[in-house]
Measured scan of single mutants.
Amino acid sequence: WVPTKREEKYGVAFYNYDARGADELSLQIGDTVHILETYEGWYRGYTLRKKSKKGIFPASYIHLKE
């Protein structure tokens, strides 16, 4: 896992994603996520609506905010 280059990196989910394991994070369309790390097509972070739950999710489900 590699920390993100920018201190504040955010994105928005444009697909729903159902977590398949305890380390994964479920997403709903429109969720804003804070991205902490990246690795081979995956991000690690949390949604702003539930900051206490961190997990991994596919990068392809996220539109990055500039």
Rank of each mutant, 00 (worst) to 15 (best):
Y15L: 15
L27M: 02
L27P: 00
T4W: 09
L27Q: 01
S26M: 03
D18V: 14
I29H: 04
V33M: 03
Y43F: 08
H34K: 13
R20P: 03
E24F: 06
L25P: 00
D23T: 06
A19H: 01
K54I: 15
R44K: 10
Y61P: 03
D31S: 04
L27K: 02
G11M: 04
I35R: 00
I62Q: 00
L48M: 12
D18L: 12
N16S: 10
I56D: 01
R6A: 13
D31I: 06
L64H: 03
R44F: 15
A22F: 09
K65S: 13
V33R: 00
A13M: 02
H63M: 14
Y39C: 14
E8V: 11
K5G: 13
R49N: 15
G55F: 02
L48Q: 06
V33D: 01
P58K: 02
L25M: 04
G11W: 06
Y10A: 04
F57P: 02
T4R: 07
K54N: 07
G11K: 03
R44H: 06
Y17N: 00
E8W: 11
L64F: 09
Y39W: 13
V12R: 06
V2S: 08
H34M: 14
I29W: 05
W42H: 01
D31P: 02
R44Y: 15
K5I: 08
R44D: 02
F57G: 01
W42N: 00
Q28V: 13
A59K: 14
E40W: 10
Y10I: 10
D31G: 02
L36P: 00
N16V: 07
G30Y: 04
P3V: 05
S26P: 05
T4N: 09
Y43V: 02
R49K: 14
E37L: 07
Y43L: 04
R49F: 12
K5C: 14
T32G: 08
E37G: 06
W42C: 04
E37Q: 07
R20S: 07
K50C: 15
K54F: 12
T47S: 09
G55N: 00
L48N: 10
R20G: 06
V33W: 01
T32F: 15
E66M: 13
I62W: 02
W1N: 07
T38P: 01
G45A: 01
G30V: 03
R44C: 14
K54W: 11
V33G: 00
H63A: 10
W1K: 08
I56S: 04
T4M: 09
E66W: 13
Y15G: 13
Y15F: 12
K65T: 14
Y15R: 15
K53P: 04
Y61C: 15
F57I: 01
F14R: 14
S52E: 13
Y61V: 15
F14A: 13
L27V: 02
L25E: 00
